[in-house]
């Protein structure tokens, strides 16, 4: 459970503004933050991580006080158990993929096991001995995610993790994020501009504009993207076989987070294939 009210002066293109956000997150919730640039999205994440100091307010995580203006209490980033994934990934160029994870996992119980588990979860085992320069954007992003998890965080902060990726690696990383969320059930804040991505991953979405909360609520799927379907079978591995309404086509999709439909249930689906690749990849 995360409860905060944070304020900070912002310097936007439209002149000085004040970031003022009050939110409560349920344990295990995945909250998306969206809004135009300069709205204060990244600033909010940095305040939560302790990379910037708020001007006033408070921040409580699982009953522990991370920041309180009144009591002049501020926990430095080193002592906040969280994972932060940066827009530019911020992998350490002097270390291989494995060393990046090992550096993060140092001090945790069973660091080697944790490291191996994360490498295989994010399909990085093959790349473990490479340095970040020798990786594609999507691969680097998966390393950044694995490294953030290697500290066994209680809160995961993702600053536009998918923005710089193209179609296929974007899909793959979305899947990885969904898997991670199912596996670790971490309270997560995700900055994203893509309504389809938000609808797929997030429980709730907060729209920020000029430092203020415009709207908090369920993600709205983009218009025209919804397809009705009926569950035909529940498959092993958390997959559902669904018959699309008005056709005989069958698709297999991951079950939605937090519920287990049974055969015969009606579902609303968003189909995500956007183009047909020329080459198999």
């Amino acid at each position: 459970m995360i409860d905060f009210h944070l304020t900070k002066a912002l310097h936007t293109a439209a002149g000085p503004r004040k970031l003022d956000v009050r939110l409560t997150l349920a344990p295990g919730e995945l909250l998306a933050i969206s809004g135009p640039s300069g709205a204060g999205k990244t600033t909010l994440l940095r305040l939560l991580a302790g990379l910037s100091r708020p001007d006033s307010g408070f921040l409580q995580v699982d009953g522990q006080e991370w920041y309180s203006h009144e009591r002049k209490h501020w926990l430095p980033p080193q002592r906040r158990p969280l994972g932060f994934v940066f827009q530019d990934y911020a992998l350490f160029p002097n270390m291989t993929v494995r060393e990046n994870l090992a550096f993060a996992a140092a001090g945790q119980p069973n660091p080697r096991q944790l490291e191996a588990g994360l490498l295989s979860l994010l399909e990085l085992t093959e790349l473990a001995e490479r340095r970040p320069v020798a990786l594609s954007g999507g691969q680097q992003q998966r390393v950044a995610l694995a490294r953030a998890l290697a500290r066994r965080p209680r809160l995961l902060l993702l600053d536009e993790p998918l923005a710089a990726l193209d179609g296929p690696s974007r899909q793959r990383l979305q899947q990885a994020l969904a898997d991670i969320h199912r596996e670790f059930n971490l309270t997560t804040l995700l900055i994203s501009h893509d309504p389809a991505e938000i609808a797929r991953l997030a429980h709730r979405v907060v729209e920020l504009d000029l430092g203020r909360v415009r709207r908090v609520g369920a993600p709205e799927p983009p218009a025209g993207a919804l397809v009705q379907g009926r569950v035909e079978a529940v498959l092993p591995g958390g997959l559902l076989r669904v018959r699309l309404a008005g056709s005989t086509a069958l698709v297999e999709v991951p079950a939605p987070v937090g519920s287990t439909p049974v055969p015969g249930d009606e579902l609303a689906l968003m189909l995500a294939v956007v183009s047909v690749p020329q080459l198999a990849c």
Binding site: A49, Q78, G83, L91, F92, N94
Partner: peptide
């Protein structure tokens, strides 16, 4: 700057960050 910040969010002290992350790079 994100290299330093990444090390901080991983719980690393200033000195460790300087020695293991900044200087080698």
């Amino acid at each position: 700057r994100s290299l330093t910040e990444a090390a901080y969010t991983l719980g690393k002290s200033r000195l460790t960050t300087l020695w293991r992350v900044l200087l080698p790079n």
